[in-house]
Write a protein that binds this DNA or RNA. Structure first.
Length: 842
RNA sequence: ACCCGGGUGGCGGAAUGGGUAGACGCAAGGGACUUAAAAUCCCUCGAUGGCAACAUCGUGCCGGUUCAAGUCCGGCCCCGGGUACCA
């Protein structure tokens, strides 16, 4: 027990013990409360980075804590193994992506094990294995059956570096999320999944996600982008079809003084055939589309088409313009312009001399200068709108919408910003989309019995173009039934498809189906932990997929993640750790130097999980110092305390202890427990650790290390056995601290638990509760204020009444100094806290 | 522009539903031990004035509510993140 703290010896031994007894392998147990704790699975890039370590430490602390609360805890881990980096690495190293990926998984798994995470490795999965993706292909067949997956030509975001299509979610500021290159627009035949079919439910159910951060919910709401409005048409001279527009402000209908259509709008195209100026503008819009992203604020440009439309209510002739800011992809590609009440329309109108016609009076008596800006309000009442004058916003919208509907000119409509999910990728290293094409290029499903469509792993991979196109053994196949020749699809799925259901599959390892009944035992996930960067992408797709699975009868719940914790970034020198910035710290070197417990402790101590964490080498050493002091205190506090414990327990601890220092220490032990219990629930591990450090400082003073000359600095002389009562109280503190620290630093806790003669393993110890009796002191210290300023402290009996407290406070020397010669107006007593004496000059 | 966060010592960060601002740790300074260094231990550590006791100021800025405001209310400023011609 006197050996120095040596994590290099302790940690592998404890990990081997856990592995040998299958400590973290779990089964479904009917009637026992379950807890499914999930961390976002890593991409096997080669080695863990600090972001992973932080994410997985948080998940592990939560899992181990929940286990000590008595729950049946599932904490799985796996690999998001398909994706582009494997292809890049393959080109660089001239090895197949599969080989590179599996080698990385192997190495990173070793790193995770070295960190001591309590994973059930028997459920491990890698998304690139046919065992996994065959069910994805099977499910795609179900989506095809239901018409929820379909193929269409579409203008797509084309990443010129990655040579592939990107989803809208993967385009950031007009650039590819991974390549950072400006995205081009191309028309390609693509596979889509009908997420828009679920837009309403995905939006509505956000309200159920009480355990999610508000920020993430807001981002998802904005992304889905629901709006309510009216769709209606304008009669256009010389056109049979009406020109449809969509508006969320039908109340401003009488203020329309122009109509704007997109450059790609058919009407603009038609006029362009005979009008060179319009033709030039349309061409400019098309070219600008590519460069659009590069221009921070593009100039608002437009040309008149030289044709007019009839206002649906007044019949007035209104000019139609082509304008570069109207998007063909949203609404109808045409908008009504109300320059008086829309800032963008106002700017365009001012630049092109279009009439600004106010139809809303400013609220109250306010005046508005339409030469300065548009009047944006929903608070005014209508003017210049005939029969609709004097109506407020809500009534005007209703009345005008009713009018349009009755006249058959339009109808109320709900629109979403959300687009269907494009899942085709022109990449090799992904899950093959399980379809084929017959001689007429018609889509034919691969029968379930022929799944999986296996991706060939031994490939010569030299360039960016998918080797699948050249592999005739993969490409050429035959039609089911007839045996006629057919060609396989060579596109693969977006890797977000795999990561949308991996946590379902964790529940059902080895199932000879996509999922089985076990899924509903574990799901929904009780706690999900991951990076904020997935607020929309992954978390929206996963919610969507869960609903698809539900509607296929595979799960029962509506939402997959009950609670979500988004951890903050790991920073170094104020900016995010990244290879490109060259400010990374390798977790491996830290583990080798200090041990896993120190790295985990620092991660949890430096800041709360949802905030950014600043890496600090010196503070890591400080965390290590704490573990060493704890270890040493435990070592010199060993010895048999069973007898004293039994005596104290029999008589009631609080009543039986007569040593005031022991009584005080015991109060501190239980104060720590009270704080730890409260803060564990809030994920405030930094303050839990601070409370343990405080307790350690107190215990260190209670049983100090002998000084060099052999004499103890306080209390009993060195070598002399400690008073049994004191020893028992100290032991209680050490045991409590070991429990509380166990989820954070599980290796040292495991070893000390044994050394402290506690039964079983600390991973299964019952979570300790604070003893109210221990917290109740004989006396309490109160703060005394005069006019809100701190002037002194008094000690009163815990049972003292307000009268006594007041008398004691007023009698205090320092207080009298501040109250003498003054009139006492009021005395406020806050029980257990303070006394405030309000005085006034006489 | 809009929507979320957030501004507290030299630094990371604490502070139950208004109730001792700066817990805990890091860094720094001083001291002990040591031939020396490392390690360890002890002390100091928001600002200003004072030998000191102590006093005054202090949680981005201005104002308000209250016996009492980092915390609540109103108005601004700054930083981080997200979304943006969305009709």
């Amino acid at each position: 027990m006197t050996s120095p703290y040596n994590p290099a010896e302790i940690e592998p031994a404890v990990q081997a013990y856990w592995e040998d007894c299958g400590a973290f392998v779990v089964r479904e147990e009917a009637g026992r409360e379950k807890f499914y704790c999930l961390s976002m699975l890593p991409y096997p890039s080669g080695q863990l980075h600090m972001g992973h370590v932080r994410n997985y430490t948080i998940g592990d602390v939560i899992s181990r804590y929940q286990r000590m609360l008595g729950k049946n805890v599932l904490q799985p881990m796996g690999w998001d193994a398909f994706g582009l980096p494997a292809e890049n690495a393959a080109i660089e190293r001239r090895m197949p992506p599969a080989k590179w990926t599996y080698a990385n998984i192997d190495y990173m798994k070793g790193q995770l094990k070295r960190l001591g995470f309590a994973y059930d490795w028997s459920r491990e999965l890698a998304t690139c294995t046919p065992d996994y993706y065959r069910w994805e292909q099977w499910f795609f067949n179900r989506l095809l059956d239901k018409g929820l997956a379909y193929k269409k030509m579409a203008v797509v975001n084309w990443d010129p570096v990655e040579q592939t299509v990107l989803a809208n979610e993967q385009v950031e500021n007009g650039r590819g999320w991974r390549s950072g290159e400006v995205v081009e627009r191309r028309e390609v035949s693509q596979w889509f999944i009908r997420i828009t079919e679920y837009a309403e439910e995905l939006l509505r159910d956000i309200d159920k996600l009480e355990g999610w951060p508000e920020s993430v919910k807001t981002m998802q709401r904005n992304w889905i982008g629901r709006s309510e409005g009216v769709e209606f048409g304008f009669e256009v001279e010389g056109e049979r079809e009406r020109l449809g527009v969509y508006t969320t402000r039908p109340d401003t209908l009488m203020g329309i003084t122009a109509i704007f259509v997109a450059g790609e709008h058919p009407l603009a195209g038609k006029v362009a055939q005979s009008d060179a100026k319009v033709a030039a503008f349309v061409a400019e819009c098309k070219n600008a589309a590519t460069a659009e992203a590069e221009l921070e604020a593009m100039e608002k440009k437009g040309v008149p088409l030289g044709i007019t439309a009839a206002h649906p209510l007044s019949g007035e002739r209104i000019d139609i313009w082509a304008a570069n800011f109207v998007l063909m992809g949203y609404g109808t590609g045409a908008v009504m312009a109300v320059p008086a009440h829309d800032q963008r329309d106002w700017e365009f109108a001012v630049a092109h001399g279009i009439e600004i016609r106010p139809v809303i009076a400013p609220p109250g008596d306010a005046q508005h200068d339409f030469d300065q800006s548009a009047l944006i309000t929903k608070a005014g009442t209508l003017i210049n709108s005939g029969e609709f004058d004097h109506l407020d916003f809500a009534r005007a919208c209703d009345a005008i919408a009713d009018h349009l509907e009755k006249a058959g000119l339009g109808k109320r409509a709900v629109k979403y910003r959300l687009r269907d999910w494009g899942v085709s990728r022109q990449r090799y290293w992904g899950c093959p989309i399980p379809v084929m094409y017959d001689g007429d290029d018609k889509v034919v499903q691969v029968p379930d019995a022929d799944l999986p469509v296996v991706l060939p792993e031994e490939v010569a991979f030299s360039g960016v173009k998918s080797p699948l196109k050249e592999r005739t053994d993969f490409r050429q196949t035959t039609l089911p039934g007839s045996g006629e020749p057919a060609l396989r699809e060579t596109d693969t799925f977006d890797t977000f498809v795999e990561s949308s259901w991996y946590f379902h599959r964790y529940c059902c390892p080895g199932a000879d189906a996509m999922l089985d009944a076990r899924a509903d035992y574990w799901l929904p996930v009780d706690q999900y932990i991951g990076g904020i960067e997935h607020a929309v992408l992954h978390l929206l797709y996963a919610r969507f997929f869960h609903k698809l699975l539900r509607d296929a009868g595979l799960v029962k719940s509506d939402e997959p993640f009950t609670n979500l914790l988004t951890q903050g970034m790991v920073l170094k020198d104020g900016s995010k750790m990244s290879k490109s910035k060259g400010n990374t710290v390798d977790p491996q070197s830290m583990i080798e130097r200090y041990g896993a417990d120190t790295v985990r402790l620092f991660m949890m101590f430096a800041s709360p999980p949802d905030q950014a964490l600043e890496w600090n080498d010196a503070a890591v050493a400080g965390a290590h110092r704490f573990l060493r002091r704890w270890w040493q205190l435990a070592a010199r506090s060993a010895g048999d305390v069973a007898g004293a414990k039994a005596t104290l327990a029999a008589n009631g601890w609080a009543a039986a202890i007569d040593d005031p220092a022991a009584l005080d220490l015991r109060r501190r032990v239980h104060a720590m427990l009270q704080k730890a219990n409260r803060d564990y629930r809030k994920f405030h591990y930094n303050t839990v650790i601070a409370a343990c450090m405080e307790l350690l400082n107190a215990m260190d003073k209670f049983n100090p290390a002998p000084s060099a000359d052999g004499a103890a600095t306080d209390g009993a002389a060195a070598g002399e056995a400690m008073d049994p009562q004191r020893a028992a109280v100290l032991r209680e503190g050490l045991v409590a601290m070991t429990c509380v620290m166990a989820p954070i630093t599980p290796h040292i806790a495991h070893r000390l638990w044994r050394d402290l003669d506690e039964p079983g393993d600390v991973i299964d110890a019952a979570w300790p509760q604070a003893d109210a009796d221990a917290l109740r002191g004989e006396a309490v210290e109160l703060v005394v204020q005069v006019n809100g300023k701190l002037r002194g402290h008094i000690e009163v009996a815990a049972t003292a009444g307000d009268e006594d407290i007041q008398t004691t406070a007023l009698a205090h020397d320092k207080i009298r100094k501040h109250t003498d010669g003054k009139v006492i107006r009021k005395v406020i007593v806050v029980p257990g806290r303070l006394v405030n004496i309000v005085v006034q000059d006489a």
